[in-house]
């Protein structure tokens, strides 16, 4: 379904994606890595939004040569949702429906699927974050594409919204869709992904499963550490070296830890004379359905 062959993308001197190759047939695949690891760039290259070296194929269709056709097979939810704010919800989805050559009935069905029907006359800028995300999901599902690509689909959502999105995606997966998503939340990955690609500085450093990444998946918690002084990327590197799954997003360091050893990263950091000011245990996504 999704096939990448030595995809390389440089922005000036920095190499954002450095010869990534992988092949994925069915089910959900997650991209895991800290900010700047190249997740977003890789996704954009896969969709042919950015010109890059190497080649990408979706359902066997070369993205660069026949980008239009390839993208018709992909529903995409971007990281930052940007709509024409003045537009009304109904107009927005109608526009995307016409872009994807999808009938009004299908648009209505997609809207109903995310239970946004009835809100057509609302202006997009007046929608809540969750509603916007659902709108994006509805747009991604227009025309029932076999592949759905999401770039941090839950980053702007509260726990309820996140739960809803994960739930929807899981049911899509059950319908047989191929899902590729980037995330920095272990719980999401555990509950959704069949396979995880760990990205670091534009390369795949591990190609594994959530269980391979976090052996005690049921016991995993995500904690957020707030440091004193030390730059977060440095601390993240130390923790990564110690085998923790780390994500740093500018407002604290998110670390996946076994449920009963929540303090372990703190002691690791202490050994490197990095002081932790505060610790937050992030609420849990229900992962009990992960295996179903």
């Amino acid at each position: 379904m999704i096939e990448a062959r030595s995809i390389t993308k440089r922005f000036g001197r920095t190499t954002a994606v450095d010869g990534i190759s992988f092949c994925h047939e069915r089910g959900a695949i997650a991209l895991w890595g800290s900010n700047g690891a190249g997740k977003t760039t890789l996704i954009r290259c896969l969709l042919g939004i950015l010109r890059c070296g190497g080649s990408a194929r979706i359902c066997g269709i070369d993205v660069r040569r026949r980008g239009r056709l390839a993208r018709a097979l992909v529903g995409y939810v971007p990281q930052e949702l940007a709509f024409h704010d003045d537009a009304r919800l109904g107009r927005a989805i109608a526009f995307f429906a016409s872009l994807r050559r999808v009938s009004h009935e299908d648009a209505a069905r997609a809207l109903a699927l995310v239970s946004l029907n009835g809100h057509e006359t609302k202006r997009v800028r007046d929608l809540s974050g969750g509603m916007k995300q659902r709108l994006a999901l509805a747009i991604a599902m227009l025309g029932d594409p076999p592949v759905i690509v999401l770039d941090e689909p839950t980053s702007n959502l509260d726990s309820e919204g996140r739960h809803e999105v994960v739930h929807t995606l899981r049911s899509l997966k059950q319908q047989g869709k191929t899902i590729l998503f980037a995330s920095h939340r272990p719980d999401e990955i555990i509950s959704l992904a069949d396979r995880v690609l760990v990205l670091e500085r534009g390369r795949i450093v591990r190609d594994t499963t959530p269980i391979g990444l976090w052996p005690h998946e049921r016991a995993v918690k995500t904690i957020r550490l707030h440091l004193v002084g030390t730059p977060e990327p440095e601390a993240a590197r130390i923790l990564l070296r110690e085998g923790f799954a780390v994500h740093c997003n500018g407002s604290g360091l998110c670390v996946a830890v076994p449920r009963d050893r929540k303090a372990s990263p703190i002691s690791v950091l202490a050994r490197h004379e990095i002081e932790v000011r505060d610790l937050e245990v992030l609420e849990e996504v229900d992962t009990s359905e992960a295996s179903s």
């Binding site: 009304r88 109904g90 107009r91 009004h104 648009a107 809207l111 109903a112 029907n117 009835g118 057509e120």
Partner: peptide
């Protein structure tokens, strides 16, 4: 006209 989908829903 802003399309509405209530009927379909």
């Amino acid at each position: 006209r802003t399309p509405t989908y209530r009927r379909d829903a």
